[in-house]
Amino acid sequence: MIFENLTVDTNELPKTSELSFEPLERKYLTVSLLADALFFVPLLIGSACLIFFNDNIATVWTNFVYLCGGILLLWSSAILITYKGFFKKKYALRSRDVIYKKGLFWQSRISIPFNRVQHAEIKQGPIDRMYSLYSLKIYTAGGHSSDLVIPGLAEDKAQGLKEFILKKTAEDAPRIK
């Protein structure tokens, strides 16, 4: 046993690490890549304009290569990270909690028991709308550090998850005040 003074053998408990996790919708990868582009394209255009219109910077092709090349390099690494990171984002439901894991270099796994959930809602951003994707937001009490967002869900899935969690939250609510 790992912790000898506990009355429960932790090896006998259900393990979150051995769950089978579900991936997010594939369309969410496109959404994330679009969000990347939405950041980098204006940056690229802006810097090109800067070189072109600013009199103090010579409008020569080397300057374009240095600045825009740098940005393109950053963009391509962002694309790589977004792509690789997408496959790390997964969620799982158990009978009494919801678990979400993510992260490429810094991996994390957060578990929220249903009897500690305050509220759950589904949200949709502007890019999400184009691909009819939703994200599920789960709120806990006091501050926002332990709130959880599961992005990239199809509508029926998001709605179903939300209803399931709210139903479970009501069922599991503490009986002794």
Partner: peptide
């Protein structure tokens, strides 16, 4: 992981 599973068990089995 032992701590994680144990804490979740304590929370979920509490009323």
């Amino acid at each position: 992981e032992a701590l994680e599973n144990f804490v979740l068990y304590k929370v979920e089995s509490n009323d």
